[in-house]
Design a protein around this nucleic acid. Structure first.
Length: 122
DNA sequence: CGGCTGACGACCT
DNA sequence: GAGGTCGCCAGCC
């Protein structure tokens, strides 16, 4: 599936290669499901770059065609930035994903597992 | 090239 | 459960 943001012109696309790889991964997550920064990091090749995944999403423009709200922290917790967390909760609720406090209800059941996710080689 | 900045995650009180 | 510490590393000056 092509990268939807790409069709809207270069200005919508958050540039560098790493950011694009993160966005491609997020686009795989279907509505009503969630994934974690760590899972995306693992899908990209290293569980150690979970934090960079977060920064890449933070750099997204407001009009990016990327469902960033489906990405939560480990254990189904929402992001630590309060303003972001509120927006995220509202967007998740619109997809039928309930949140109590800062945690997704039934996180394991809602979790999207990336195909071919492999633990770090060396 | 070097320092700064963080939507994380694991672990500790 | 609710705080804090620390290692992690890609971008951007």
């Amino acid at each position: 599936m092509p990268y939807e943001a790409e069709r809207h012109g270069p200005r919508r696309l958050v540039g560098p290669g790493f950011h694009r790889r993160v966005q491609s991964a997020v686009l795989m997550v279907p509505p009503g499901c969630v994934t974690t920064y760590g899972d995306i990091a693992a899908a990209l090749g290293s569980v150690r770059i979970a934090r960079q995944v977060g920064f890449a999403l933070a750099a997204l423009p407001a009009d990016a065609a990327v469902p960033w709200w489906r990405v939560v922290a480990a254990g189904g917790r929402l992001s630590t930035a309060p303003a972001t967390a509120r927006r995220q909760q509202r967007l998740l609720a619109a997809e039928g994903v309930a949140v109590r406090g800062t945690r997704v209800i039934d996180f394991q059941g809602r979790r999207f597992v990336f195909p071919g996710i492999v633990p770090e080689p060396s």
